[in-house]
């Protein structure tokens, strides 16, 4: 396509006129008003998907890690044996340490017991007709 000598200066003049038009304060104001009316503000940094997606996945990972390593709510498999049985309702004083402690059959409820090195056993042994809760870990020797 042939290019005329006057084409470049004319295009340049046209471009500068357009730029000067766009930079006019009233045009700017109108543009800002238009954007404000029809476009919502960008969300704050920590509410943007680019931040929320990795942050939430990191939070989930941390939650799983806490569940995994926290002894209270361990997800790790462990050998668990719960042998619980109740005896008849007996209440009497048992001397322990410097004070007398009143105990009853339901004195201890073993909610959970697990061991990594042996077999745990929960049993009640009668002491003067009084059931005492004992949790014993059988590690292959040293039986009670």
């Amino acid at each position: 396509m042939r290019e005329y000598k006057f084409e470049k200066p004319v295009l340049k003049a046209y471009r500068s006129w357009i730029e000067s038009e766009i930079r006019r304060p009233e045009v700017r104001r109108e543009k800002d008003a238009f954007v404000k009316t029809y476009f919502s503000k960008p969300p704050l940094f920590f509410l943007r998907p680019a931040f929320l997606a990795p942050a939430s996945s990191f939070a989930v990972m941390m939650f799983i890690a806490v569940l995994w390593y926290w002894p209270t709510t361990s997800l790790k498999p462990g050998r668990e044996i719960q042998m619980m049985h109740r005896e008849g309702a007996v209440v009497e004083n048992v001397a322990s340490g410097d004070s007398d402690v009143v105990v009853s059959p339901g004195m201890v409820d073993v909610k959970r017991v697990a061991s990594r090195v042996g077999t745990p056993m929960v049993y009640y042994k009668s002491n003067h007709g009084q059931p005492i809760t004992i949790i014993w870990i059988f590690t292959g020797g040293n039986t009670p």
């Binding site: 339901g106 073993v110 042996g118």
Partner: peptide, 11 residues
Amino acid sequence: RQYVDTVLSIL
């Protein structure tokens, strides 16, 4: 090594 891990509800 975890020898025993138990949760007890004690009166």
